[in-house]
């Protein structure tokens, strides 16, 4: 039974938090990967999660992943919300029976004392219409704040999962804000350097302001619609040629293009469903082909 021991010094900075989680999960036998170099709405879209969850092969990995959700942009004015933020993603396949204990140990490893904090597993079932995927699990609360998502994948790309993959997703900014006792994500200390502290705001405030302007005001919707079509057609063509990894990347591009169109309110409610289904259809077809390739 887990001890929830605090065996590492509390991470003082954002980068320490990433180091601590990477270190913890490396010790649990995870491959520590680096972020995928494309825009995506969540760490689940990384092929190391989405594709590796398909089929029978065991697989454990962990990685930080920058996420982009254009509609969540607030021009850098909201202390909690941004269109670009970080998740730390852990994939354990098959999900070990002690997965919750491991997760709680990882909280101890980043300095969260579970005998002081009120930690709760509150039901929250995950579903991604674009990926044809769903799972059951919880959002994890620390004193009423959601700090992680915890999911047992049941279906990926329209395919039932066996064995089951367990997915842990840490909201890094939220955890860092609590650990560093700051009220705005822009006040998070990313690193201490000889030239003084570098904050999250130093690194990303301009980015938030400019990207929000682009997402909400400047993105060329006509061009985006054309791009969406293009990405969709390319993905379908690559799929035919069994080039599944490039095909999947084009699904990611189509998905992000759709998100941009959404943030420009360029898609009506009824059309929205149709667009989602187009992405989903491709994701499911790639998943099926990936499973067949083995």
């Amino acid at each position: 039974m887990a001890l929830y021991r605090m065996d590492l010094q509390t991470p003082q900075t954002f980068q320490d938090l990433i180091f601590a989680l990477s270190h913890f999960w490396a010790k649990q036998g995870c491959v520590i990967l680096q972020p995928y170099d494309m825009e995506m709405g969540a760490g689940t879209f990384h092929p190391a999660s989405f594709l590796r969850a398909i089929g029978p092969k065991p697989w454990s990995c962990a990685y930080p992943q920058p996420c982009r959700r254009p509609t969540d942009g607030r021009y850098g004015e909201n202390p909690n919300r941004a269109q670009h933020y970080y998740q730390f993603q852990v994939i354990l396949k098959p999900s070990p029976l002690n997965i919750q204990e491991l997760y709680l140990d990882s909280l101890a490893a980043i300095g969260i004392d579970v005998k002081t904090q009120d930690i709760r597993f509150v039901e929250d079932n995950w579903e991604s219409p674009t990926l044809g995927a769903w799972g059951l699990g919880w959002e994890v609360w620390q004193n009423g704040m959601e700090v992680s998502q915890f999911t047992y994948f049941q279906q990926i790309g329209g395919l039932p999962c066996h064995p089951i993959t367990g997915e842990l997703t840490y909201g890094l900014e939220r955890l860092a804000m609590t650990l560093q006792h700051v009220n705005s994500l822009y006040d998070i200390i990313w690193a201490h350097t000889p030239n003084g502290p570098v904050t999250y705001g130093d690194l990303f405030l301009h980015n938030e302001q400019q990207q929000s302007t682009f997402n909400f005001e400047k993105a060329d919707t006509t061009l985006l619609f054309t791009q969406f079509e293009h990405f969709e057609q390319t993905a379908a063509k690559l799929l035919e040629e069994q080039l599944l990894l490039p095909a999947y990347e084009h699904v990611l591009k189509a998905s992000h293009t759709f998100n941009l169109l959404d943030s420009r309110h360029a898609i009506s409610v009824t059309e929205r469903q149709r667009f989602l289904l187009r992405v989903r259809k491709l994701a499911c077809a790639i998943a099926t082909a990936y499973k067949e390739q083995g």
């Binding site: 002081t116 930690i119 704040m145």
Partner: peptide, 19 residues
Amino acid sequence: ANIESKDPQQVIKGNEKVV
């Protein structure tokens, strides 16, 4: 809360922040 916390103030402060 689901815990007799070693420091209930931390739990209260956390909840207040989210609220």
